[in-house]
Design a protein around this nucleic acid. Sequence first.
DNA 1: TCTTTTTCTGACCGTATGGTCAGGTTGAGG
DNA 2: CCTCAACCTGACCATACGGTCAGAAAAAGA
Lengths: 206, 206
Amino acid sequence: MAEITPQRPRTRIQRRNIGTILEAALEVFSAQGFRGATLDQIAQAAGLSKPNLLYYFPSKEAIHVELLSGLLDDWLAPLRAMDPAGEPKAEIMAYMHRKLEMSREMPRESRLFANEILQGAPRMSALLGSELKELVDEKAAVIRAWSEAGRIAPVDPHHLIFSIWALTQHYADFDVQVRAVLGPGRDPLDEAGQFLDTLFERLLAP
Amino acid sequence: MAEITPQRPRTRIQRRNIGTILEAALEVFSAQGFRGATLDQIAQAAGLSKPNLLYYFPSKEAIHVELLSGLLDDWLAPLRAMDPAGEPKAEIMAYMHRKLEMSREMPRESRLFANEILQGAPRMSALLGSELKELVDEKAAVIRAWSEAGRIAPVDPHHLIFSIWALTQHYADFDVQVRAVLGPGRDPLDEAGQFLDTLFERLLAP
DNA sequence: TCTTTTTCTGACCGTATGGTCAGGTTGAGG
DNA sequence: CCTCAACCTGACCATACGGTCAGAAAAAGA
């Protein structure tokens, strides 16, 4: 009975199976939520047996936590990339577009986070108050400086960031609603790109 | 064994208990999601026994459906109230503020809907494509007319409505995240009111 | 090839959960 | 006060689910 620990380097098989499991878990957790997902569903989606899942991860919860913590960096990367030395409006617009692109390319990750936050972030609240808050505060200071220098219109930096999150993630998290309202034959994400361009253009114009 | 049907008028006790159950179910479903909520939790929150719940509702699912369909009208009321004969910007601003007020006063309802939509709206997709779409299309036409008459800046009406939903509901659905980032001693909803005023002011100014 | 370690599985277990039922209790109308 | 329908409950059931375990199968190493 060998524990799979980060101590000794992972074998080829371990890398492959752990990857497969996390991919399957993302699929199932994002669609069903933590409580709604079952190990059998994940096992089936991964093409592995249930005991085999639990050979690689000690519990259902451990899979979920691994997914969340592994994703947080990807999730915050676009904000990290916002350059204090860049042109203010261009930097903010680029951030918004990168987030919108993630709603198109990574809707499952978006929904996974949304599910977690909706339930009160029981497995993430620590990270929210530390890592996330620090990054946001840092970037908010940058935006505030831009704002005070008159390079963008005056605006609350924290709520500006919230608005980017809300407006971009909405197209991933509420996809069914958006599509139901728009009807077939329209590309919500394309239109959103145009609309949000206009919105932030007008909001930020000095 | 009497069925509780809408046929014969409800007794006093029925009205009271059905109300209590729906209130408790809203509390539990909105915090845990459908799958995460248990009948025992709802029964305890309602101060009733589990079999007694099932005396008034045939199943857990029935309680959930009743909640959702009963809530849809309240949810759409602010949009319905948008008056084509009113002053365009004021009407839109008023709608936004009413929605924001609902995020403050009815966060559980907001999260209940968010949960449902996130899971792909398995119990609501019919309503989304009919009742919701029709109302939104109707109001979108009004907004488009305002826009074409030059009374507000040109803007895609459907995405304008989406943006109001996204920006206001974000403060209810992602409450923990918003509070974690802002830190203690700030009132997110108050600040949001200011910020969104500015945002839509600049977006809509002709 | 032989040995050791890693990988994998069928069978099984305890608990939680949605739901049922026979029968008791309470309230309303006469 | 009596009767009948409405209301309520403890005990119970079947299933789903997370997790365990003894040992087989497959890789890796010598």
